[in-house]
């Protein structure tokens, strides 16, 4: 397996920025190791699948990055994933006009929404989408689960689901942040 074939497999499905950095470092490594052009590189570089697995743990794939950038498979021409999270407070206030006791979720949602506006546009979209889901989940799911299970264990189940979702989201956000930095040549 020559360097080109190895790199093809090691950077499979990764975005250009990440693949470019890996290619540059790999070719420099081979040059330093004195491996001739066209020679089998596995003895020096190891298994390309191991590298690909390691890189996928660190970075989003090109497809995942595109999903974040475009709003995913449920995208519409209205770009709802961008606007819906921002319009939610307005809808909520109008829906519960005169019932200020129902406004409490906004006390957490709105400051969080303002904070994420400072992020890179893709990370902002990512965070807005998650905050929106979190809002809807927190308002409707725990009480529904308590009703369905008929016990306060519903709260425990809801907390578990929330924690699971938060951990997965934060891991994905860290991968997105690294991918964006690699794309800018800063990672």
């Amino acid at each position: 397996m020559n360097a080109h074939q190895w790199l093809d497999r090691a950077t499979r499905e990764l975005p250009e920025g990440v693949a470019g950095r890996v290619e540059q470092e790999t070719r420099a490594h081979l040059q330093d190791a004195g491996v001739p052009e066209g020679a089998d590189v596995r003895a020096v570089l190891g298994d390309p699948e191991t590298t690909n697995d390691g890189l996928r743990r660190l970075y989003l794939t090109a497809k995942e990055l595109e999903e974040v950038a475009t709003g995913g498979s449920l995208r519409t021409g209205w770009n709802l994933s961008e606007w819906l999270p921002r319009l939610l407070p307005v809808f909520w206030v109008l829906a519960f006009w005169g019932e200020t006791s129902q406004w409490w979720p906004l006390a957490l949602y709105v400051p969080a929404l303002i904070l994420v506006q400072r992020l890179h546009s893709l990370r902002r979209r990512h965070w807005q989408g998650w905050l929106f889901s979190l809002f809807v989940f927190s308002v409707f799911v725990p009480e529904t689960l308590v009703e369905v299970t008929g016990t306060p264990a519903g709260w425990l189940l809801a907390s578990g689901l929330l924690l699971y979702s938060a951990v997965n989201f934060l891991k994905r956000d860290a991968r997105l942040r690294r991918t964006l930095l690699a794309g800018e040549g800063r990672a």
Partner: peptide
């Protein structure tokens, strides 16, 4: 090996 070094 490079395969694990650079991701690390």
């Amino acid at each position: 090996r490079e395969g694990t070094l650079y991701p690390a």
